[in-house]
Design a protein around this nucleic acid. Structure first.
Length: 571
RNA sequence: GCGCCAUUAGCUCAGCUGGAUAGAGUACCUGGCUACGAACCAGUAGGUCGAGGGUUCGAAUCCCCCAUGGCGUACCA
């Protein structure tokens, strides 16, 4: 907020002058805070640090400052301030009605935000499921966090490249090919999709425990696939196509799109050059038959580049992919959204890239998130402890439908709205807490529609939209003598920190900052809504409140967009 | 063993570079729909901020140590 910033600057200069420049204005400026309690004003200056510099008790300083500023305010020399109080070492400042009225214009202005990333490109690697598996709970963290980050970067003016680094290569495919040849058919796979693939894969896994020869044939099959066996390649393409069809449905319902689907298979051709480069740069050592880069100087175990049988590994592929992306997109940052369990892996290969001499190693960012469990147990398809995303979404949608039938049976597009709310509840679930927190999934929480939930946000949005709809073409003008009440003041202040919240979520790669902010903002709006009539308000208040409600819709709408939830006009 | 992360109300979580009486939601109890939408709002109650030291005028926040839990720790991704 430009006006608040410039006010702070002026105040800092004034305070500095009061003490003969004993403390510089640049030191005073960052001391300004927003009081936690609205009753303490809109802006405050804690005087404890000043007390140290000036060797005067904080209470005394606060009193001196308050008295001088109060005089200036009375003389209309600081017309933004209506009242100044000294309270236990703080100077509390109350904004004037005039300032509140003019702050409204500035609300929701993102012009400064959208300059942050001008001319910069960010690659975001997220979602990245392994082919031939159904989309489940374990995938939604990376998917919704990555998508939200991408939206945040976009809002801030960055060019983004959303990359779905599909897990579409590896010995698994050898198993799948063998299993397919024994128990399945093209028709079956085409009709049952990923379910069929999961089924035969699980069966192969199970049977290979008793019959070790199955493992050998799987390895042989994959090796043959790598060498270009046309029959196997054809099957691999089928598996990939069927899986991708399933994933595209999921992404469509979540409203998420990608700029690239270059998965692991894509980089196989680029890996030999990486291995060669590591060798040339003297980084590659042989240990127990495997090729590694030692990282003991950095307090990490070695990065494995080649297995003792000469085949490549995860870090090899990631390094190759990073090099390719740098060349292709010339990114300023490349962000990887994966589980926190992979932190060491990323630290290792980031270091290897640095040792290779690439200055852009510092632009690689790992964004970890916590582990999702269910019933206190690890999610695993092997043990059957798994929740598929389509089940979760359809349950949420079903519940939303039920509630709509109950509370708003005349709603026109019921199904569409129920999907928006059901999906919103699921997305919200993935973005409400700080991403690093572990979470134990519970149906009760996931399907809860009251309190701090996705439906609460959408309900509040729809309610505000409904008010504006009912005002129709009512003329909106802010009467220049209107005196905002406490609820209106609070809403203005709440809406005014939008820009700060976006900056903070961008800096920390933390979408939950926006989710939290939106929850708080909806709470403040609801208080305003309950305490101040809008449509039936007196003329002077009406224009003010309609404008404020529109600003709320704009900012809440931006937040919903950012976290990837639908903006429900009616619900 | 070593490393990383977490620990705040019964439960799920906020708490900005240290600042005012540590805040929400949920669950329990209570009040508010002939009303711009009750998927809401208001109120009561609920805390030795995991334990102990230290730095500071001031610590949930910074430092040290310990405890508990999760994850990782050379041929999976």
């Amino acid at each position: 907020m430009e006006q608040i910033t410039s006010l702070k600057k002026r105040l800092a200069r004034l305070v500095s002058d009061m003490f003969g420049g004993g403390v510089g204005e640049n030191e005073i400026f960052p001391l300004f805070e927003s009081p936690a309690e609205p009753k303490n004003g809109e802006l405050c200056l804690p005087c404890f640090r000043l007390a140290k510099a000036l060797r005067t008790p904080p209470g005394e300083i606060a009193l001196t400052v308050a008295r001088s500023l109060s005089e200036l305010a009375d003389e209309k020399k600081i017309k933004e301030i209506s009242e100044v109080k000294a309270v236990s070492g703080y100077v509390n400042l109350y904004f004037s009605d005039e300032l509140f009225r003019s702050l409204i214009d500035e609300l929701g202005d993102i012009s400064r935000l959208s300059k942050l990333g001008e001319g910069k490109t960010v690659c975001l690697d997220f979602s990245s499921p392994n082919i031939a598996k159904k989309f489940h709970l374990g995938h939604i963290g990376t998917t919704v966090i990555g998508n939200a980050l991408r939206n945040i970067f976009n809002l801030c003016g960055y060019k983004t490249v959303a990359i779905n680094h599909l897990g579409d290569w590896g010995t698994n495919f050898g198993m799948l090919i063998c299993a397919f040849k024994m128990w399945s058919s093209r028709e079956k796979v085409l009709s049952d999709g990923v379910i069929e693939l999961e089924k035969i894969y699980a069966r192969y896994n199970k049977e290979s425990r008793n019959d070790k020869s199955l493992e050998d044939s799987a390895r042989a099959a994959f090796s043959s696939l790598e060498k270009g066996n046309e029959e196997y390649l054809e099957l691999w393409r089928l598996f990939k196509e069927v899986s991708l069809n399933e994933y595209m449905k999921v992404y469509e319902i979540l409203g998420i799109s990608f700029d690239s689907f270059t998965g692991e298979s894509f980089y196989t051709d680029y890996m030999p050059a990486v291995v060669e480069e590591l060798r040339e740069k003297g980084l590659l050592k042989t240990d127990d038959g495997a090729s590694v880069v030692y990282l003991s100087d950095y307090n990490m175990p070695p990065a494995l580049i080649l297995r003792s049988d000469g085949s490549t590994l995860y870090p090899t592929r990631d390094i190759a992919a990073a090099k390719w992306r740098k060349q292709e997109y010339d990114f300023d940052k490349c962000v990887y959204v994966t589980s926190a369990g992979q932190s060491l892996h990323f630290a290792q290969w980031f270091k290897v890239v640095e040792l290779m001499g690439y200055d852009w190693a510092g632009d690689l960012v790992h964004v970890p998130y916590g582990t999702m469990s269910f019933g206190g147990e690890k999610l695993a398809s092997r043990t059957g402890n798994i929740i598929y995303l389509d089940d979760l979404i359809s349950q949420a949608v079903e519940k939303a439908e039920k509630i709509i039938d109950e509370k708003n049976p005349d709603l026109k597009n019921k199904r569409e709205t129920a999907v928006a709310v059901g999906v919103g509840a699921v997305v919200f679930g993935g973005l409400s807490a700080a991403r690093i927190k572990d979470a134990d999934f519970s149906w009760d929480t996931a399907l809860s529609f009251e309190g701090d939930t996705g439906p609460y946000l959408q309900y509040t949005y729809a309610r505000a939209a409904s008010v504006i709809r009912k005002c129709g073409g009512d003329e909106v003008s802010i009467i220049c003598s209107y005196s905002p009440n406490d609820g209106e003041k609070r809403l203005i202040m709440q809406l005014s920190v939008f820009e700060d919240k976006i900056r903070s979520s961008l800096k920390d790669y933390e979408p939950s900052v926006i989710t939290r902010y939106l929850l708080d903002t909806c709470g403040v709006f609801n208080q305003f809504y309950h305490s101040s009539p809008i449509i039936r308000a007196p003329e002077d208040a009406k224009g003010f409140r309609i404008t404020l409600t529109k600003k709320f819709l704009q900012i809440a709408g931006s937040c919903l967009d950012l976290i990837g939830m639908a903006k429900t006009q009616e619900i």
